[in-house]
Structure formats: C-alpha cells, structure tokens
Amino acid sequence: MISDNAKKQIDHWIEKYPQGKQSSAVMEALKIVQAENDNQLTHDSIQAVADYLNMPGIAAAEVATFYENYNHKPVGKHIIRFCHNISCMLNGADDLIAHLETKLGVKTGEVTKDGLISVKKVECLGACVGAPMFQINDKYYENLTADKIDDIVDGLQ
C-alpha cells in the first residue's frame, strides 16, 4: 500500500521527532501517500499510514479529515486553490473565480472532464498583499488578472 519510496520519505520525517513519537509524522505521511495515489486519500491508504506509524486508524482519520489539504474525493492533476477571503475579495477575487469557472467549464469543487484541473475556493493563504491570488499545487500566483489566469491555466498540462 505504501511504496518503498514513500516509506523513505516518511522515515525522513519520523527522524525529526523524539523516539516513540513517530505519529508526529502523520500529517506529512498522509501527504506523501496522497501524492502517490492520484492526489487522494482512501480508507485503506489512511489505515496503511496509521499502521506504518503504529497509531489507531481512527486517529489518522481524524487528522486526514481535519486539515484542508487532504482530498477524499477525486481531484485534478493540478489543484487550483483560489483564495476568496477578505483581501482577495476586495481585489475582485469573486469575478476572477467566475472567470476561471467559465474558462474551465467547471464549478469550484469540481474537476475538469479531462481530469487535469480542479478548482477549490479556499480561505486566506497568507499572501494578502499579493491579492488576488491562487495556489496551484505548491506554487503561489499573485496579483492575478483575467489575462494572467488564462496564461497560467493554458500552460498547465
């Protein structure tokens, strides 16, 4: 269930914490396993992580459902996380989200038909002085305009 490569990455995180506190690595372990499984966590993968870290399955499930960055439904290869909190809102985020939805033909929370892109509305991403902004996978894109969004999204493959 967990690849050797994933185990190696998880082990790197385990090392940061005191002996016997390996469950501290659960947040990263879930992300690592998610990344290897189409950006999604399943019941079994959560259990596998729990087993690997020697913690109860429900404890890993609590973590997997508490934090935003785990997906429990199919998502795109690229996830666009569009901030719609106050600073971005003041700078026109709502219109830009509508623009993006039209461009991709999906609503927020959905995945494009080709499975390439999904869009999520999220709370403040801590880049308010660059509003409006979104995050695609690991990267922030700030001071967005409709044109800029078109360029960025067109470049996704």
């Binding site: 106050i86 600073s87 709370e123 403040c124 801590g126 308010c128």
Partner: peptide, 11 residues
C-alpha cells in the same frame, strides 16, 4: 502558521 486573513508577513 500565519493564517489570519490580512496577514502575510511571516511568509
């Protein structure tokens, strides 16, 4: 953790 809307200095 910087998550309070409006805050982006620690980043």
């Amino acid at each position: 953790d910087e998550g309070e809307p409006g805050t982006c200095k620690d980043r």
